[in-house]
Amino acid sequence: MDPFSIAAGVVGIVAPTLHCVRLLVKDLQNIADAPDAVKALTTDLQSVGLALASVQAVTDPQWKSLGDAVTAQSEAAITSCKTSCERFKTSLDRWTRHSTDGTLSWRDRATLGVFRQGHIKSISEQLQKCNITLTSVASIATLHSSLQQTQTAEEIKTMISTKETAINDEIAAINDLSAETIAQLETLALAEPDEGETDADQTGATKQVAMEKRALAESRKVLEGLLLVIQTAAANAQARQGPTVNFGSHNKGQQVGVNSGTIYTTFGRKG
């Protein structure tokens, strides 16, 4: 498949996802006395909005440098984010159906039970990981471009080491969170609804946690792909520089690392 076609798929899904995120932020901000757990989602959504904007700024050549696999998985991660936001908006509309004038009524406020809280917790975790993943995509795209420029070996080593550490740490965090989603699904299956909650709340919470589990797997694939991208780019950048000689701390006198040619040395006259 043409890599530019794949990149177009990412660009195509970013705009509607960003629109969905902004609508949900607006809905949450219109609930004057929303519970803290609901209010906290506003920050998560705004962060994802910034990450989506950064991905939107990635150029076609940069997507090509990231490769088909990373590009396709990025599209899948964004699509999962959009789906979760749409589902949560539907649930939020149902939860606040008794509210008027943008104020969450006490009746609605009092029925944020186990399933609704589980739904909120799960989408919050998904949004946070989506933000980190998409920010990493944009960051590595920029890093890859910079590695094509003239850089010293030490600069390359530092940049790659920093990115590798951050991505490996995030993959480990995703693995831990994935294990938690399995336990959470089991808990939701056995839980009894709180007063005011319905079967729709249990179904919504369960679907969201299942979606989070899938989204985490998608994010892991993106991050693993990014690791390969930066390692390959670093190797190519260093190969272009040719072999280097490390003299350690003794930066004086005549020193030779490995040499197979003739050496011409001119000595100046001591004054």
Rank of each mutant, 00 (worst) to 15 (best):
L127S: 02
I120G: 00
D93R: 08
A172L: 14
S145D: 09
L147K: 00
G196M: 10
I123V: 05
L41Y: 00
A166R: 06
L185N: 03
G253E: 05
V209R: 01
A77F: 06
K129A: 13
K163R: 14
T244R: 09
K129I: 15
I31C: 04
Q241N: 07
T232F: 02
Q126T: 05
T198I: 11
R269K: 15
N259A: 14
G67W: 07
S5T: 11
K89Q: 12
N236A: 13
F267Y: 14
F247P: 04
K39T: 10
V245E: 07
P3Y: 03
R269I: 15
E170T: 14
A51Q: 03
Q117A: 12
T262I: 13
A205Y: 03
R214E: 15
T83K: 09
V70K: 01
V137K: 00
N236E: 12
V10L: 03
Q117W: 10
T96D: 04
K270H: 14
G12E: 06
A8C: 05
A53Q: 10
E180A: 15
I160S: 02
G268Y: 14
S99N: 01
A57C: 06
T59G: 01
G271D: 15
D36R: 12
Q128P: 01
N30R: 07
V10R: 00
T42H: 03
V222G: 00
F88Q: 01
G248D: 03
